[in-house]
């Protein structure tokens, strides 16, 4: 329902409000008020033409009302709010792709880890397995050593997991324990090959090494910082293998 008087009143009022993007909302709000008043007057028996004019009159001076509205609908705040809303929408759109790629990488890590370590028959039957349960923190990585295994052909296997700290701001490089860091109790260094699985955030590693006596009593995993690399990041883990054969009934 529209009357010319109403449009004139609202147009006059809106001329006082400088922030134009709010005009539609203000117009709708005032039209609703006028319709309510009009309805009440008509229901009291006032003729329709009179009711339309009375409704406008009861709204007061449009210039004064417009000035009051202008102070509430501050143009600076209005534009600021709009600008921030657009910026927010843009950033939400822009963040979808990188977040999706992180989510996919995380999913890949979880799927890769769900399968656990891969058992192998390549080195014959398992002679013994010793749980380790030690962890070291290395900048944005936590390395968890799970298990040492000895196989029939004398090859040892070290199983460990690498967890990348999700919210650490360090650049995300992968981590692999070097062979020079694994020694027997007599200081002999390991040699061999390795395999890994998982993904960017979580990965599991299986390092096979040979050249150690199957009777070694101790395995040492040690990383010593050099003049620059790993400086201040030393760690040493000693794994007691004495009694492992006996426990396996050998």
């Amino acid at each position: 329902m529209r009357f010319k008087e109403w449009d004139d009143y609202i147009d006059c009022l809106l001329r006082q409000v400088k922030f134009r993007p709010d005009h539609d909302d203000i117009r709708a709000e005032y039209e609703e008020h006028l319709e309510d008043l009009y309805g009440e007057l008509v229901s009291c028996g006032v003729p329709e033409d009179e009711a339309a004019k009375d409704a406008v009159r009861s709204m007061g001076d449009p210039v004064e009302a417009g000035k009051l509205l202008n102070s509430v609908h501050n143009a600076f705040l209005g534009w600021l709010e709009r600008l921030l809303r657009w910026a927010m929408a843009l950033l939400i759109v822009l963040s979808v792709i990188p977040l999706l790629s992180v989510a996919l990488a995380g999913g890949e890590s979880l799927i890769g880890m769900a399968g656990g370590y891969r058992d192998t028959q390549e080195h014959g039957a398992l002679v013994y397995s010793v749980p380790v349960g030690e962890s070291v923190a290395l900048d944005n990585h936590t390395i968890s050593f799970d298990e040492v295994r000895l196989y029939e052909d004398g090859v040892f296997e070290l199983r460990y997991r690498d967890r990348l700290h999700l919210f650490d701001r360090a650049v995300k490089w992968s981590y692999d324990l070097g062979f020079s860091e694994v020694r027997d109790g007599n200081g002999n260094t390991a040699k061999g090959g390795s395999g890994s699985g998982g993904g960017s955030f979580l990965s599991r590693h299986q390092q096979y090494f040979e050249g150690f006596s199957p009777d070694i009593r101790k395995l040492v995993i040690e990383r010593r910082g050099s003049e620059y690399a790993y400086k201040g990041r030393d760690f040493r883990i000693e794994i007691d293998l004495s009694g492992a054969k006996e426990a396996a009934g050998l």
Binding site: L77, G78, E81, L84, I92, S95
Partner: peptide
Amino acid sequence: KLKKSAVWLAVIAVCAALILWSMQLY
């Protein structure tokens, strides 16, 4: 509008941090 602006600003900060983090931007 001031309250809305503050909320949008907070969302922008969170989105920006997420973009920096996920794309390894500094």
